[in-house]
Design a binder for these strands. Structure first.
Lengths: 248, 248
DNA sequence: CCACCTCCTTGATCTGCGTCATCCGAACAT
DNA sequence: ATGTTCGGATGACGCAGATCAAGGAGGTGG
């Protein structure tokens, strides 16, 4: 179809333009964060363009061969792992500037599928070239170590949430964490749109969908948030933060 | 006391002897795994000796400044994080050859205390020197990336366990995982001693101590294991593995 | 030998949240 | 409009596992 073709072309052009790290609004959060301009150009050179993913499309599938890590440029994704005959498990949500695929290095396959929750663009970074470049650029290497370390730290937080917190605390944590991540990215920490369904949230937090719904309703009654579909308005962030703490 | 002094001296001597990676029985599992002999000597040179930790002593405390990662040489440890006024949370157990402290890189402080569960010796690896060396030794760098990636992958497994598995499945997973780790280290996968208390296990798995006790009793009745205090004998590993799966 | 402590076990009761069932509204195709 | 599908809300009920309570076993010091 001619309309689509024109569309795709337009997208490709803007991608080409934006794809340079120097011009990217996320450069202060992303991997090249610590790089000097000329180093950034080296880094820039190994990055591959990717056409945008539509909602529901996967960046890669569980079990496929590991080759690259990806930096989210816009949109959002979820990581889903399927084990045996069991149900799926949502293990992570990724927002712009975050790094996807780091858990694939070890066994050279991706341990989960990563699926776009909305139209999403990513930068592909072939890992062998990244590794090689990290030999020459200590700052890049450090940033890579830090990214992985941060993910480890976040995972520990998640474990704590899953093993010690009540359903209310989990939801409160989820919202305050999202709020914080939006704030860091320059968006409003009070008003945002959830790109994931209630089912995804419940699955991620280890709760039934019904529980998520009920608690969201309760939060609304208590005047903590205003929720309408996927639009969220945080009315009392402090109270929400207090709720998220694990002492009663 | 002269007896202690003699003892300590003896320990120091044997430490000096064993402390070379070339002589270490764990070298096939540990960080220098992929190194050639001459590279290993370089790596060896940055490692610091540590006198053994006694049961209950901490390798480092939550919040203290990050400077090194540690490889466990013998014994075992637990990682514990305390948050707010809340209870402690056991987030990991470490066995010989495993790397401790990688989650401290990011914020330059250790996110949890790490405490010896029995008499334990570790190798201290100052991180700045490790990083620097990883610039020259691609194999070492790769191994470091892989270690972190593996930990990420294991964390995801743990999240799945905590959010989807029943108490029985958690305990079964715990035992099969321990069994597997012992096997890899050349110990019997069927017969071993738990260095952690029931309370530690429960805390780690998100269960009450009482639940751990009850289920251990049930496993015993079913002829899956034989447990007496901290001595464990796995009688039917296959059945235990089946139990650990998350489909009923 | 006894007192004390820590770790573990076992039983009785309670409860948070999962499960099941139903219904509502929005988006989309017919 | 009308049916269909999908995401979300709400109510009733039951159960896995927490909590409370009590007792046993081993280890250590007096």
């Amino acid at each position: 179809m001619p309309v689509n073709a024109a569309n795709a072309l337009g997208k490709r052009r803007s991608l080409l333009h934006e794809t340079r790290c120097q011009n990217c609004s996320l450069s202060s959060l992303c991997l090249p964060l610590a790089l000097e301009l000329e180093d950034m150009e080296q880094f820039d050179a190994i990055i591959r363009r990717r056409s945008p993913l539509k909602k529901g499309e996967s960046l890669f599938r569980q079990g496929s061969a590991f080759s690259s890590v990806f930096a989210v440029r816009s949109g959002s994704l979820k990581q889903v792992t399927t084990e045996g005959s069991g149900e799926d498990q949502v293990t992570n949500f990724y927002l712009p500037s975050e790094l996807v695929g780091l858990d694939g290095i070890d066994e050279q396959t991706y341990p989960g599928s990563v699926i776009a929750l909305e139209t999403t663009t990513v930068c592909e970074i072939p890992f062998d070239r990244l590794d090689h470049l990290s030999e020459q650029l200590p700052e890049l290497r450090g940033q890579l170590y830090r990214s992985m370390s941060k993910e480890l730290r976040d995972d520990r937080k998640m474990m704590r949430l899953l093993s010690r917190k009540t359903a209310d605390q989990r939801l409160a944590s989820f919202f305050t964490s999202l709020s914080d991540r939006f704030r860091r990215r320059g968006y409003s920490p009070y008003s945002f749109r959830l790109s994931m369904s209630r089912a995804d949230i419940g699955n991620y937090l280890g709760l039934a969908v019904e529980t998520v719904s009920r608690i969201l309703g309760r939060f609304q009654q208590q005047g903590l948030v205003e929720v309408s579909g996927r639009e969220v308005n945080i009315l009392n962030l402090e109270a929400l933060v207090a709720q998220a703490q694990d002492d009663h």
